[in-house]
C-alpha cells in the first residue's frame, strides 16, 4: 500500500468515491427493507400510522447507533491487527 503516485492516488480516490456511493445505496435499501420488515405488517390503513412511523424512526436511529458502535470495535480490531500481524507468515 506504499507509494502510489499522485495520479494513482487520484484514480483510487475516484474509484473509492464511486464505491462509497454504491455502499450508501446498498445500506439505504438494506435499512428500508429491515425497518419495513420490523415495523410494518398491518395493512388495514393506506399510510403509515403513528406507531409505525415511531417504530421506523427508532429503527433508523438504533441502526445508526449500532453501526457506530460496531464501527468503533472494528477500528480497534483493525488497529490491533496492524500492531501484531497474525503469525504463520
Amino acid at each position: 500500500m506504499d507509494s502510489l503516485t499522485a495520479s494513482e492516488q487520484r484514480e483510487l480516490q475516484s474509484r473509492m468515491e464511486r464505491k462509497q456511493m454504491k455502499e450508501f445505496m446498498g445500506m439505504f435499501s438494506n435499512l428500508v427493507t429491515h425497518c419495513f420488515d420490523s415495523c410494518v405488517d398491518d395493512f388495514t390503513t393506506k399510510s403509515l400510522v403513528q406507531r409505525e412511523t415511531g417504530c421506523v424512526s427508532r429503527c433508523v436511529k438504533k441502526f445508526m447507533a449500532g453501526s457506530e458502535r460496531i464501527g468503533t470495535r472494528f477500528q480497534e480490531q483493525q488497529a490491533q491487527m496492524m500492531n501484531q500481524p497474525p503469525p504463520g507468515r
Binding site: S38, C39, C55, S57, R58, C59, K61, K62, G66, R69
Partner: peptide
C-alpha cells in the same frame, strides 16, 4: 426487532 426504543 421490536424497536420500543431508539437507543442502544
Amino acid at each position: 426487532k421490536t424497536y420500543l426504543e431508539g437507543e442502544i
